[in-house]
Design a protein around this nucleic acid. Structure first.
Length: 438
RNA sequence: GGUGCCUUCGUCUAGGGGUUAGGACACGGCCCUCUCACGGCCGGUGCACGGGUUCGAAUCCCGUAGGCACUGCCA
Protein backbone atom coordinates (compact mmCIF):
# COMPACT_ATOMS: atom_id res chain seq x y z
CA UNK A 1 0.00 0.00 0.00
CA UNK A 2 1.51 3.32 -1.00
CA UNK A 3 2.07 5.94 1.64
CA UNK A 4 -0.46 8.72 2.07
CA UNK A 5 0.06 11.50 4.58
CA UNK A 6 -1.89 14.66 5.15
CA UNK A 7 -1.75 18.16 6.49
CA UNK A 8 -5.12 19.08 7.95
CA UNK A 9 -5.17 22.68 9.14
CA UNK A 10 -8.13 24.58 10.44
CA UNK A 11 -8.54 27.97 8.73
CA UNK A 12 -9.00 30.02 11.84
CA UNK A 13 -5.98 32.31 11.84
CA UNK A 14 -2.64 32.37 10.13
CA UNK A 15 -0.26 29.56 9.24
CA UNK A 16 1.59 28.77 12.45
CA UNK A 17 5.24 27.75 12.24
CA UNK A 18 4.32 24.59 14.11
CA UNK A 19 1.76 23.80 11.47
CA UNK A 20 4.26 24.55 8.75
CA UNK A 21 6.71 22.12 10.28
CA UNK A 22 4.03 19.47 10.58
CA UNK A 23 3.24 19.95 6.91
CA UNK A 24 6.93 19.75 6.10
CA UNK A 25 7.46 16.48 7.96
CA UNK A 26 4.43 14.99 6.27
CA UNK A 27 5.76 16.06 2.91
CA UNK A 28 9.23 14.68 3.57
CA UNK A 29 7.90 11.37 4.77
CA UNK A 30 5.57 11.03 1.80
CA UNK A 31 8.27 11.91 -0.70
CA UNK A 32 10.72 9.47 0.78
CA UNK A 33 8.29 6.65 0.45
CA UNK A 34 7.07 7.54 -2.98
CA UNK A 35 3.77 8.51 -1.43
CA UNK A 36 1.45 11.47 -1.54
CA UNK A 37 0.73 14.46 0.64
CA UNK A 38 -2.91 15.45 0.89
CA UNK A 39 -4.18 18.86 2.02
CA UNK A 40 -7.47 18.71 3.87
CA UNK A 41 -9.25 21.71 5.32
CA UNK A 42 -10.82 21.11 8.71
CA UNK A 43 -13.49 23.76 8.75
CA UNK A 44 -16.25 22.19 10.80
CA UNK A 45 -16.40 25.12 13.18
CA UNK A 46 -18.18 27.65 10.99
CA UNK A 47 -17.95 30.49 13.45
CA UNK A 48 -14.18 30.48 13.52
CA UNK A 49 -13.34 29.95 9.87
CA UNK A 50 -12.40 32.76 7.52
CA UNK A 51 -11.50 32.83 3.82
CA UNK A 52 -8.47 34.98 4.66
CA UNK A 53 -7.15 32.31 6.97
CA UNK A 54 -7.55 29.69 4.29
CA UNK A 55 -5.62 31.86 1.87
CA UNK A 56 -2.90 32.44 4.45
CA UNK A 57 -2.44 28.70 4.75
CA UNK A 58 -2.13 27.99 1.05
CA UNK A 59 0.04 31.09 0.54
CA UNK A 60 2.33 29.97 3.32
CA UNK A 61 2.65 26.46 1.97
CA UNK A 62 3.29 27.79 -1.52
CA UNK A 63 5.95 30.14 -0.26
CA UNK A 64 7.75 27.36 1.58
CA UNK A 65 7.49 25.14 -1.45
CA UNK A 66 5.42 22.55 0.35
CA UNK A 67 3.65 21.22 -2.66
CA UNK A 68 0.83 18.84 -1.88
CA UNK A 69 -0.23 16.23 -4.38
CA UNK A 70 -3.89 16.01 -3.73
CA UNK A 71 -6.59 17.83 -1.83
CA UNK A 72 -7.88 21.35 -1.47
CA UNK A 73 -7.19 23.36 -4.59
CA UNK A 74 -5.83 20.36 -6.46
CA UNK A 75 -8.59 17.80 -6.40
CA UNK A 76 -8.22 14.04 -6.27
CA UNK A 77 -10.21 10.86 -5.97
CA UNK A 78 -11.18 11.24 -2.34
CA UNK A 79 -12.76 14.67 -2.29
CA UNK A 80 -14.23 16.96 -1.45
CA UNK A 81 -11.32 18.10 0.67
CA UNK A 82 -13.10 20.60 2.86
CA UNK A 83 -14.91 19.08 5.75
CA UNK A 84 -17.74 21.54 5.38
CA UNK A 85 -18.56 19.81 2.09
CA UNK A 86 -18.45 16.25 3.31
CA UNK A 87 -21.61 15.97 5.30
CA UNK A 88 -23.04 13.00 3.42
CA UNK A 89 -19.90 11.00 4.13
CA UNK A 90 -20.10 11.79 7.83
CA UNK A 91 -23.78 10.84 7.94
CA UNK A 92 -22.92 7.49 6.44
CA UNK A 93 -20.31 6.66 9.05
CA UNK A 94 -22.40 8.13 11.80
CA UNK A 95 -25.15 5.68 10.85
CA UNK A 96 -22.65 2.85 11.24
CA UNK A 97 -21.81 4.00 14.75
CA UNK A 98 -25.47 4.31 15.62
CA UNK A 99 -26.28 0.89 14.24
CA UNK A 100 -23.47 -0.55 16.32
CA UNK A 101 -24.89 1.03 19.44
CA UNK A 102 -21.81 3.22 19.91
CA UNK A 103 -23.66 6.50 20.32
CA UNK A 104 -26.12 8.11 22.67
CA UNK A 105 -27.76 11.45 23.05
CA UNK A 106 -26.80 13.89 25.75
CA UNK A 107 -28.62 17.22 25.97
CA UNK A 108 -29.16 17.25 22.23
CA UNK A 109 -25.55 16.45 21.41
CA UNK A 110 -24.36 12.99 20.43
CA UNK A 111 -21.63 11.24 22.33
CA UNK A 112 -19.53 8.24 21.47
CA UNK A 113 -19.68 5.48 24.04
CA UNK A 114 -16.17 4.40 24.92
CA UNK A 115 -15.61 0.62 25.13
CA UNK A 116 -13.75 1.38 28.37
CA UNK A 117 -10.71 -0.73 27.73
CA UNK A 118 -7.01 -0.11 27.70
CA UNK A 119 -5.92 1.28 24.35
CA UNK A 120 -2.36 0.94 23.20
CA UNK A 121 -0.99 3.62 20.92
CA UNK A 122 1.97 2.32 18.98
CA UNK A 123 3.60 5.54 17.91
CA UNK A 124 6.42 5.77 15.38
CA UNK A 125 8.09 8.49 17.42
CA UNK A 126 6.91 7.91 20.99
CA UNK A 127 6.82 4.14 21.07
CA UNK A 128 4.12 2.01 22.68
CA UNK A 129 1.94 3.86 25.17
CA UNK A 130 -0.94 2.34 27.12
CA UNK A 131 -3.96 4.42 27.99
CA UNK A 132 -6.36 3.05 30.55
CA UNK A 133 -9.72 4.32 29.35
CA UNK A 134 -11.79 2.45 31.90
CA UNK A 135 -12.64 5.38 34.13
CA UNK A 136 -15.45 7.55 32.68
CA UNK A 137 -14.65 10.32 35.13
CA UNK A 138 -11.12 10.80 33.87
CA UNK A 139 -11.93 9.86 30.27
CA UNK A 140 -15.46 11.04 29.59
CA UNK A 141 -17.25 9.96 26.44
CA UNK A 142 -16.44 12.42 23.71
CA UNK A 143 -19.01 14.45 21.89
CA UNK A 144 -18.99 13.82 18.17
CA UNK A 145 -21.97 15.89 17.05
CA UNK A 146 -23.43 19.17 18.24
CA UNK A 147 -27.14 19.68 18.82
CA UNK A 148 -27.30 21.71 15.60
CA UNK A 149 -26.11 18.66 13.69
CA UNK A 150 -22.57 19.90 13.01
CA UNK A 151 -19.62 17.61 13.64
CA UNK A 152 -16.83 17.61 16.17
CA UNK A 153 -13.18 17.34 15.21
CA UNK A 154 -12.45 13.86 16.59
CA UNK A 155 -15.15 12.19 14.53
CA UNK A 156 -14.62 13.90 11.19
CA UNK A 157 -10.87 13.67 11.52
CA UNK A 158 -11.07 9.90 11.90
CA UNK A 159 -13.67 9.46 9.18
CA UNK A 160 -11.64 11.53 6.74
CA UNK A 161 -8.38 9.77 7.44
CA UNK A 162 -10.25 6.55 6.85
CA UNK A 163 -12.06 7.67 3.70
CA UNK A 164 -8.97 9.33 2.29
CA UNK A 165 -6.97 6.18 2.95
CA UNK A 166 -4.30 7.76 5.06
CA UNK A 167 -1.51 5.39 5.96
CA UNK A 168 0.38 7.69 8.33
CA UNK A 169 -0.82 10.45 10.59
CA UNK A 170 2.07 12.76 11.48
CA UNK A 171 0.90 15.52 13.77
CA UNK A 172 1.75 17.58 16.84
CA UNK A 173 2.18 15.92 20.18
CA UNK A 174 -0.80 17.87 21.48
CA UNK A 175 -2.84 15.14 19.83
CA UNK A 176 -1.14 12.26 21.58
CA UNK A 177 -3.72 12.22 24.35
CA UNK A 178 -6.51 12.28 21.78
CA UNK A 179 -5.17 9.31 19.92
CA UNK A 180 -6.67 6.55 22.09
CA UNK A 181 -10.07 8.11 21.52
CA UNK A 182 -9.46 8.16 17.83
CA UNK A 183 -8.43 4.53 17.88
CA UNK A 184 -11.67 3.64 19.64
CA UNK A 185 -13.52 5.34 16.83
CA UNK A 186 -11.62 3.45 14.14
CA UNK A 187 -12.42 0.20 15.88
CA UNK A 188 -16.10 1.04 16.25
CA UNK A 189 -16.15 1.75 12.53
CA UNK A 190 -14.56 -1.62 11.93
CA UNK A 191 -11.44 -0.10 10.50
CA UNK A 192 -7.71 -0.42 10.97
CA UNK A 193 -6.16 2.79 12.31
CA UNK A 194 -3.29 4.39 10.39
CA UNK A 195 0.21 4.54 11.81
CA UNK A 196 0.73 7.49 14.12
CA UNK A 197 3.77 9.70 14.61
CA UNK A 198 3.52 12.51 17.13
CA UNK A 199 6.15 15.18 16.81
CA UNK A 200 7.27 17.48 19.63
CA UNK A 201 5.77 20.93 20.02
CA UNK A 202 7.38 24.29 19.30
CA UNK A 203 7.43 26.59 22.31
CA UNK A 204 8.26 30.25 22.87
CA UNK A 205 11.06 31.57 25.08
CA UNK A 206 8.91 31.11 28.16
CA UNK A 207 8.48 27.46 27.31
CA UNK A 208 4.82 27.93 26.46
CA UNK A 209 3.01 27.22 23.26
CA UNK A 210 4.04 29.74 20.62
CA UNK A 211 1.35 32.41 20.29
CA UNK A 212 0.56 35.36 18.00
CA UNK A 213 2.44 37.69 20.29
CA UNK A 214 5.69 35.83 19.80
CA UNK A 215 7.84 37.07 16.94
CA UNK A 216 8.02 34.45 14.26
CA UNK A 217 4.95 32.47 15.25
CA UNK A 218 3.27 33.23 11.97
CA UNK A 219 4.86 32.18 8.74
CA UNK A 220 4.04 35.55 7.18
CA UNK A 221 6.51 37.12 9.59
CA UNK A 222 9.37 35.46 7.74
CA UNK A 223 8.19 36.51 4.34
CA UNK A 224 7.72 40.11 5.43
CA UNK A 225 11.05 40.30 7.21
CA UNK A 226 13.17 39.16 4.35
CA UNK A 227 13.73 35.53 5.16
CA UNK A 228 14.07 33.06 2.35
CA UNK A 229 12.02 29.88 2.30
CA UNK A 230 14.99 27.52 2.14
CA UNK A 231 16.35 29.01 5.38
CA UNK A 232 13.03 28.81 7.19
CA UNK A 233 12.54 25.25 6.00
CA UNK A 234 16.05 24.41 7.14
CA UNK A 235 15.45 25.92 10.56
CA UNK A 236 12.04 24.34 11.00
CA UNK A 237 13.24 20.86 10.22
CA UNK A 238 16.00 21.22 12.81
CA UNK A 239 13.42 21.72 15.54
CA UNK A 240 12.91 18.25 16.93
CA UNK A 241 14.91 16.54 14.26
CA UNK A 242 18.58 16.08 13.59
CA UNK A 243 20.31 14.38 10.70
CA UNK A 244 23.28 13.59 12.94
CA UNK A 245 26.95 14.06 12.09
CA UNK A 246 26.69 17.67 13.30
CA UNK A 247 25.04 18.71 10.09
CA UNK A 248 22.85 21.80 10.23
CA UNK A 249 23.17 23.91 7.14
CA UNK A 250 21.14 21.86 4.69
CA UNK A 251 19.61 22.38 1.29
CA UNK A 252 16.10 21.21 0.63
CA UNK A 253 17.47 18.34 -1.43
CA UNK A 254 19.68 17.25 1.47
CA UNK A 255 16.83 17.45 3.94
CA UNK A 256 14.73 15.37 1.61
CA UNK A 257 17.42 12.75 1.43
CA UNK A 258 18.37 12.64 5.11
CA UNK A 259 14.97 12.96 6.77
CA UNK A 260 13.76 10.08 8.86
CA UNK A 261 11.11 9.67 11.53
CA UNK A 262 13.79 7.87 13.57
CA UNK A 263 15.73 11.10 13.86
CA UNK A 264 12.86 12.89 15.56
CA UNK A 265 13.29 13.37 19.27
CA UNK A 266 10.53 13.66 21.85
CA UNK A 267 11.43 16.94 23.51
CA UNK A 268 9.50 20.09 22.83
CA UNK A 269 11.71 22.71 21.26
CA UNK A 270 11.95 26.42 22.00
CA UNK A 271 11.86 28.60 18.94
CA UNK A 272 15.04 30.64 18.53
CA UNK A 273 14.89 33.45 16.01
CA UNK A 274 18.65 34.07 16.29
CA UNK A 275 19.53 30.78 14.73
CA UNK A 276 16.97 31.18 11.99
CA UNK A 277 18.52 34.57 11.27
CA UNK A 278 21.96 33.05 10.97
CA UNK A 279 20.70 30.32 8.70
CA UNK A 280 19.09 32.99 6.53
CA UNK A 281 22.42 34.72 6.00
CA UNK A 282 24.05 31.41 5.18
CA UNK A 283 21.47 30.54 2.56
CA UNK A 284 21.59 34.04 1.11
CA UNK A 285 25.33 33.65 0.64
CA UNK A 286 25.20 30.25 -0.96
CA UNK A 287 22.23 30.69 -3.25
CA UNK A 288 22.62 31.43 -6.94
CA UNK A 289 22.83 35.12 -7.84
CA UNK A 290 19.80 34.87 -10.10
CA UNK A 291 17.70 33.63 -7.22
CA UNK A 292 19.00 36.34 -4.95
CA UNK A 293 18.04 38.91 -7.54
CA UNK A 294 14.58 37.45 -7.99
CA UNK A 295 13.92 37.28 -4.26
CA UNK A 296 15.26 40.77 -3.65
CA UNK A 297 13.25 42.42 -6.38
CA UNK A 298 9.97 42.81 -4.45
CA UNK A 299 11.78 44.50 -1.59
CA UNK A 300 13.60 46.83 -3.97
CA UNK A 301 10.42 47.75 -5.79
CA UNK A 302 8.57 48.31 -2.55
CA UNK A 303 11.30 50.67 -1.38
CA UNK A 304 10.84 52.69 -4.55
CA UNK A 305 14.37 52.16 -5.78
CA UNK A 306 14.73 52.47 -9.51
CA UNK A 307 17.94 51.06 -10.88
CA UNK A 308 19.49 52.80 -13.86
CA UNK A 309 19.78 49.53 -15.73
CA UNK A 310 19.25 45.86 -14.98
CA UNK A 311 22.96 45.39 -15.38
CA UNK A 312 23.69 47.99 -12.72
CA UNK A 313 21.19 46.38 -10.40
CA UNK A 314 22.86 43.03 -10.92
CA UNK A 315 26.25 44.51 -10.08
CA UNK A 316 24.86 46.16 -6.98
CA UNK A 317 23.29 42.96 -5.75
CA UNK A 318 26.48 41.06 -6.43
CA UNK A 319 28.48 43.14 -3.97
CA UNK A 320 25.72 43.04 -1.38
CA UNK A 321 24.89 39.35 -1.47
CA UNK A 322 27.79 38.02 0.61
CA UNK A 323 27.04 40.33 3.49
CA UNK A 324 23.34 40.96 3.81
CA UNK A 325 21.35 38.83 6.26
CA UNK A 326 17.79 39.79 5.38
CA UNK A 327 16.29 40.55 2.01
CA UNK A 328 14.51 43.42 3.69
CA UNK A 329 17.92 45.05 4.25
CA UNK A 330 18.78 45.03 0.57
CA UNK A 331 17.13 48.39 -0.27
CA UNK A 332 19.09 50.19 2.41
CA UNK A 333 22.27 48.53 1.20
CA UNK A 334 21.93 49.51 -2.44
CA UNK A 335 19.76 52.62 -2.39
CA UNK A 336 22.62 55.11 -2.40
CA UNK A 337 23.93 53.62 -5.63
CA UNK A 338 20.94 54.83 -7.57
CA UNK A 339 20.34 58.33 -6.26
CA UNK A 340 22.32 61.42 -5.34
CA UNK A 341 19.77 62.13 -2.67
CA UNK A 342 20.86 59.45 -0.24
CA UNK A 343 20.43 59.96 3.50
CA UNK A 344 23.34 60.44 5.86
CA UNK A 345 23.40 58.58 9.12
CA UNK A 346 24.18 61.28 11.73
CA UNK A 347 26.11 58.87 13.88
CA UNK A 348 28.30 57.73 11.02
CA UNK A 349 28.90 61.33 9.96
CA UNK A 350 29.84 62.24 13.49
CA UNK A 351 32.21 59.34 13.81
CA UNK A 352 33.96 59.44 10.44
CA UNK A 353 33.56 62.88 8.87
CA UNK A 354 33.68 65.22 11.83
CA UNK A 355 37.03 64.04 13.10
CA UNK A 356 39.65 66.81 12.74
CA UNK A 357 41.65 65.20 9.95
CA UNK A 358 38.80 63.38 8.30
CA UNK A 359 38.14 65.95 5.61
CA UNK A 360 41.87 66.34 4.93
CA UNK A 361 42.10 62.62 4.31
CA UNK A 362 39.03 62.71 2.12
CA UNK A 363 40.50 65.58 0.10
CA UNK A 364 43.83 63.81 -0.27
CA UNK A 365 42.10 60.64 -1.36
CA UNK A 366 39.97 62.56 -3.81
CA UNK A 367 43.02 64.12 -5.35
CA UNK A 368 44.78 60.78 -5.58
CA UNK A 369 41.80 59.10 -7.18
CA UNK A 370 41.24 61.96 -9.60
CA UNK A 371 44.39 60.99 -11.48
CA UNK A 372 43.57 57.30 -11.56
CA UNK A 373 43.11 56.12 -15.09
CA UNK A 374 41.99 52.56 -14.52
CA UNK A 375 38.81 52.68 -12.40
CA UNK A 376 38.66 49.17 -11.03
CA UNK A 377 38.40 47.69 -7.59
CA UNK A 378 42.08 46.59 -7.41
CA UNK A 379 43.37 49.86 -8.84
CA UNK A 380 41.29 51.91 -6.42
CA UNK A 381 42.45 49.80 -3.53
CA UNK A 382 46.10 50.16 -4.55
CA UNK A 383 45.78 53.92 -4.91
CA UNK A 384 44.10 54.29 -1.55
CA UNK A 385 46.79 52.27 0.15
CA UNK A 386 49.52 54.28 -1.51
CA UNK A 387 47.86 57.46 -0.31
CA UNK A 388 47.62 56.12 3.19
CA UNK A 389 51.21 54.94 3.18
CA UNK A 390 52.39 58.33 1.95
CA UNK A 391 50.65 59.86 4.96
CA UNK A 392 52.20 57.25 7.22
CA UNK A 393 48.79 55.83 8.05
CA UNK A 394 46.82 52.63 7.69
CA UNK A 395 43.95 52.43 5.26
CA UNK A 396 41.27 52.91 7.89
CA UNK A 397 41.51 56.71 8.28
CA UNK A 398 40.87 57.04 4.56
CA UNK A 399 38.39 54.26 4.14
CA UNK A 400 35.91 55.36 6.77
CA UNK A 401 35.40 58.95 5.65
CA UNK A 402 35.17 57.74 2.05
CA UNK A 403 32.58 55.16 2.93
CA UNK A 404 30.37 57.61 4.75
CA UNK A 405 30.83 60.31 2.11
CA UNK A 406 29.82 57.99 -0.66
CA UNK A 407 27.05 55.97 0.97
CA UNK A 408 25.95 58.00 3.98
CA UNK A 409 26.45 55.00 6.20
CA UNK A 410 29.08 53.23 8.26
CA UNK A 411 27.94 49.78 7.21
CA UNK A 412 27.64 48.43 3.73
CA UNK A 413 29.33 46.52 0.95
CA UNK A 414 33.09 46.53 0.49
CA UNK A 415 34.36 50.08 -0.16
CA UNK A 416 36.37 49.39 -3.30
CA UNK A 417 33.49 47.57 -4.93
CA UNK A 418 31.22 50.45 -4.05
CA UNK A 419 33.55 53.00 -5.54
CA UNK A 420 34.07 51.02 -8.70
CA UNK A 421 30.36 50.71 -9.19
CA UNK A 422 29.66 54.38 -8.61
CA UNK A 423 32.24 55.50 -11.14
CA UNK A 424 34.91 58.11 -10.77
CA UNK A 425 32.81 61.20 -11.46
CA UNK A 426 30.15 60.40 -8.92
CA UNK A 427 32.70 59.40 -6.31
CA UNK A 428 34.63 62.65 -6.61
CA UNK A 429 31.45 64.67 -6.61
CA UNK A 430 30.25 62.94 -3.48
CA UNK A 431 33.58 63.53 -1.77
CA UNK A 432 33.18 67.24 -2.40
CA UNK A 433 29.60 67.23 -1.32
CA UNK A 434 30.60 65.59 1.94
CA UNK A 435 32.80 68.53 2.78
CA UNK A 436 29.81 70.82 2.54
CA UNK A 437 27.74 68.73 4.91
CA UNK A 438 25.92 70.86 7.50
C1' G B 1 -6.91 17.39 40.44
C1' G B 2 -6.66 13.09 36.70
C1' U B 3 -4.09 10.86 32.44
C1' G B 4 0.06 10.86 29.22
C1' C B 5 4.72 12.60 27.66
C1' C B 6 9.36 15.07 28.52
C1' U B 7 14.12 16.68 31.31
C1' U B 8 22.35 17.00 28.11
C1' C B 9 25.55 24.34 27.85
C1' G B 10 21.01 30.43 27.70
C1' U B 11 18.83 27.97 22.91
C1' C B 12 18.73 23.85 19.05
C1' U B 13 21.05 19.25 19.35
C1' A B 14 24.92 14.67 19.12
C1' G B 15 26.00 10.88 22.33
C1' G B 16 21.98 5.39 24.67
C1' G B 17 27.26 1.53 30.17
C1' G B 18 34.11 3.28 29.88
C1' U B 19 33.97 10.17 25.68
C1' U B 20 38.89 15.46 28.36
C1' A B 21 30.43 14.92 27.27
C1' G B 22 30.96 16.71 20.58
C1' G B 23 28.70 20.45 17.15
C1' A B 24 25.76 24.88 15.98
C1' C B 25 23.37 29.68 17.39
C1' A B 26 24.04 33.40 20.98
C1' C B 27 27.86 35.58 24.30
C1' G B 28 33.22 37.25 25.56
C1' G B 29 38.33 37.68 23.80
C1' C B 30 41.90 37.48 19.83
C1' C B 31 43.44 37.18 14.54
C1' C B 32 42.29 38.73 9.52
C1' U B 33 40.47 43.32 7.92
C1' C B 34 37.91 49.24 5.14
C1' U B 35 33.00 49.21 8.89
C1' C B 36 29.67 45.27 9.19
C1' A B 37 29.81 40.49 7.61
C1' C B 38 32.62 36.18 6.17
C1' G B 39 36.64 33.09 7.76
C1' G B 40 40.12 31.37 11.63
C1' C B 41 41.60 30.71 16.82
C1' C B 42 40.53 30.72 22.06
C1' G B 43 37.00 30.88 26.24
C1' G B 44 32.98 30.08 29.78
C1' U B 45 28.63 27.97 31.07
C1' G B 46 25.50 21.57 30.56
C1' C B 47 23.92 15.56 31.66
C1' A B 48 17.22 18.50 36.98
C1' C B 49 17.76 16.12 42.01
C1' G B 50 18.07 11.65 45.16
C1' G B 51 18.66 6.65 45.52
C1' G B 52 19.94 2.08 43.41
C1' U B 53 22.21 -1.80 39.62
C1' U B 54 27.44 -2.08 38.01
C1' C B 55 34.41 -2.59 38.49
C1' G B 56 32.33 1.65 35.90
C1' A B 57 26.08 5.51 34.77
C1' A B 58 24.67 11.36 30.88
C1' U B 59 23.48 6.37 29.19
C1' C B 60 19.79 0.99 32.78
C1' C B 61 16.01 0.84 37.17
C1' C B 62 13.13 3.33 41.06
C1' G B 63 11.65 7.72 43.39
C1' U B 64 11.26 13.13 43.72
C1' A B 65 10.91 17.77 41.55
C1' G B 66 9.92 20.73 37.40
C1' G B 67 7.94 21.51 32.48
C1' C B 68 4.47 20.54 28.57
C1' A B 69 0.06 18.50 26.46
C1' C B 70 -4.72 16.58 26.93
C1' U B 71 -8.74 16.48 30.24
C1' G B 72 -14.41 21.31 25.25
C1' C B 73 -20.94 20.81 22.22
C1' C B 74 -12.14 24.23 19.69
C1' A B 75 -9.03 21.97 16.19
Amino acid sequence: MSVRTRFAPSPTGYLHVGGARTALFNLLFARQHGGKLILRIEDTDEKRNTPEALEAITDGLDWLGIDWDEGYGKGGNFGPYRQSERNAIYEKHFAVLQAGGHTYEDAGAIRFRSPRKTVTVDDLVCGKIDFDMSNPVTHPDMTIRRPDGSWIFHFVNVVDDLEMKMTHVIRGEDHLSNTPKHIELYQALGAEPPKFAHIPLILNHEGKKLSKRDGGSSLSYFLENGYVPEAVLNYLCLLGWSPGENRELLTIAEIQELFSLDGINRRNAIFDLDKCFWLNGQHLQTMALERFVALSRPFIVKAGIVATTDEDLLKALTIVKPKVKHLSDVPAWIGFLFTEDYPFDPEAVEKSLRKPEALDHLRALGAALATLTEWTHPAIEARLKETAAAAGLKAGPFVHPARVAVSGKAVGPGLYEMLELLGKDRVLARFQKAEQLP
